[in-house]
């Protein structure tokens, strides 16, 4: 593992060219450039650690940035450009995992948890209601207690 990381560090180090990129990687048309950048933010820099190709200095990331801009400039849609890179680099390159049998649980997480939580709350309340304890008006004792905890401090 350590050796592998070392090797990857070497891979990243070479060929040491630009640090932050090159003006030629930007498209003249701001609308096209904005689209290219949005597409680039969806693509993982494969040799980096959790960075998009827009946020990386690695040589591969720069090549992919140019590629995305060429595709966009040639009139490809955002989806076509993403598909082009996806076909060559596989699922791993997409920072937004495609919805499919392997990712359905991932995408369902918000609904599952929110829904599950709501059901649990409703069930708990029903059970509580069935055992029937107390009314929902604050009793005098509870009011005094809250006043002690929340009101202005006694003089």
């Amino acid at each position: 593992m350590t050796r592998l990381l070392l090797l990857l560090a070497l891979l990243l180090a070479a060929p040491a060219h630009a640090q932050i990129g090159d003006t030629t990687y930007r498209l003249e048309d701001p609308a096209l450039e904005a689209r290219a950048r949005a597409v680039g933010r969806e693509l993982r820099c494969l040799v980096c650690q959790n960075q998009s190709i827009e946020d990386s200095d690695a040589s591969l990331a720069r090549d992919l940035r140019i590629l995305v801009r060429e595709q966009i400039a040639a009139g490809a849609s955002d989806e076509e450009t993403l598909r082009f890179v996806h076909q060559r680099y596989g699922d791993f390159v997409l920072l937004r995992p495609p919805v499919g049998i392997h990712t359905v649980l991932l995408w369902a997480t918000p609904v599952l948890f929110l829904g599950g939580g709501l059901i649990a709350i409703v069930l708990t309340r029903r059970r509580r209601a069935a055992t029937g304890i107390g009314d929902t008006e604050l009793s005098a004792e509870e009011k005094a207690r809250l006043a002690r905890l929340e009101g202005p401090p006694p003089p």
């Binding site: 933010r41 969806e42 993982r44 959790n50 998009s52 596989g90 699922d91 791993f92 390159v93 997409l94 920072l95 937004r96 995992p97 392997h102 990712t103 649980l105 991932l106 997480t109 918000p110 948890f113």
Partner: peptide, 27 residues
């Protein structure tokens, strides 16, 4: 839960199904 699952999902998918995916900022 979403952040936890999103962070661990690629690890467990790799372990259980041998598939490599990325879960990044867009997700």
């Amino acid at each position: 839960a979403v952040v936890l699952v999103g962070t661990l999902y690629p690890l467990f998918l790799d372990l259980l199904a041998g598939r490599m995916i990325s879960v990044g900022p867009p997700f």
